[in-house]
């Protein structure tokens, strides 16, 4: 039997910034975008990844010994090196590591398995009018699985929200909307070529989908405010102006100050963090952007 399975990075109960009430946030794997500032790079790839936690590692070499692909090297100086092209994700190194320094990011779950997990948090959803939020990664990349899962949630009266980058074929998104109560949609840059430079894709899908979603569902736009990248008055004004045309379903714009919490994860994935020189935006700048958005008649909020 070929049962539908989803690839999930992590579940985070007691999530408090991604929808009303107390929520369980489901981080799905896979994303069509490669945003430079991405704080969860471990969710980008549609497949397993090995995370190496350098602070736990004693460089004992057991992982290298057990690796049948010769993908792990222990240099005398510096960190353990993983050749990720050679790695077949057999996870032997993870099993053998006595210091819990290696982790496999990614777990296949069926819809009932995932539902059983989130159902444990029902007592909290009930009390707080909370629910689940699909995040990631980009949940719509696994739209078949997500649709089944959301359908099950709705059958059990659980509030559903989804964060999306908006870069997805409309028919797939439309199918998910049937089971969604609230949509968070990222507007990362209003200038399409710039959007492509920063995220790897143009923004035409995003803006087009934004218009369509707003015609039927409550939507919150999110702007990850990255200094020097997309935080100009010009870009924020353009976004607010676009939002102002969305009508009543557009609830507000959330201005999410850029942070570096994900930077360490790049390192743990053996990747380079491209934005290492950028500092989080000043509080005063965030407040000015909020006022700017509000001047378009749109509600604005700093942070999620």
């Amino acid at each position: 039997m070929n049962e539908l399975k989803g690839l999930i990075y992590n579940l985070q109960p007691f999530a408090v910034h991604d929808g009303p009430g107390i929520r369980t946030l489901i981080y799905m794997k896979g994303c069509p975008l490669r945003c430079l500032w991405c704080s969860t790079p471990q969710t980008q790839k549609m497949g397993y990844e090995i995370i190496h936690i350098e602070s736990h590692c004693r460089k004992c070499g057991r992982c290298a010994e057990v690796c049948s692909n010769g993908a792990i090297m222990i240099p005398p100086e510096g960190n353990l090196m993983i050749d990720r092209k050679r790695c077949t994700y057999c996870a032997k190194c993870i099993e053998i590591c006595p210091h819990q320094a290696l982790e496999l990011a990614g777990k296949y779950m069926t819809v009932p398995e995932l539902f059983d997990e989130i159902e444990k948090d029902q007592p909290f959803f009930r009390r707080s009018n909370g629910g689940i939020t699909m995040g990631g990664g980009e949940a719509t990349m696994q739209h078949e699985f997500v649709a089944e899962f959301l359908k099950k949630c709705k059958q059990h009266y659980i509030h559903t929200a989804m964060e999306t980058c908006g870069h997805i074929a409309w028919e797939h998104l439309e199918k998910l909307l049937t089971y969604l109560d609230l949509i968070y949609l990222d507007i990362k840059h209003m200038d399409s070529p710039m959007h492509k430079t920063l995220t790897g894709v143009a923004n035409d899908f995003v803006l087009d989908n934004a218009r369509k979603v707003c015609s039927s569902h409550p939507v919150i736009f999110r702007i990850p405010v990255v200094p020097g990248i997309n935080d100009s008055y010009e870009n924020i004004s353009a976004t607010a102006k676009f939002a102002a045309a969305m009508g009543e379903n557009l609830l507000r714009i959330e201005l999410l100050p850029y942070h570096q919490f994900g930077a360490q994860t790049y390192f743990r994935l053996g990747r380079k963090y491209e934005l290492s020189g950028i500092e989080p935006p000043e509080d005063s700048h965030m407040r000015r952007l909020k006022i700017l958005v509000e001047s378009f008649g749109i509600k604005a909020q700093i942070g999620g």
């Binding site: 992590n10 969860t40 602070s55 942070h259 919490f261 360490q264 390192f267």
Partner: peptide, 13 residues
Amino acid sequence: KVAGYNARFVDLH
């Protein structure tokens, strides 16, 4: 809470 996961503070860089 970090980004996408909870972590023991003392384990972080």
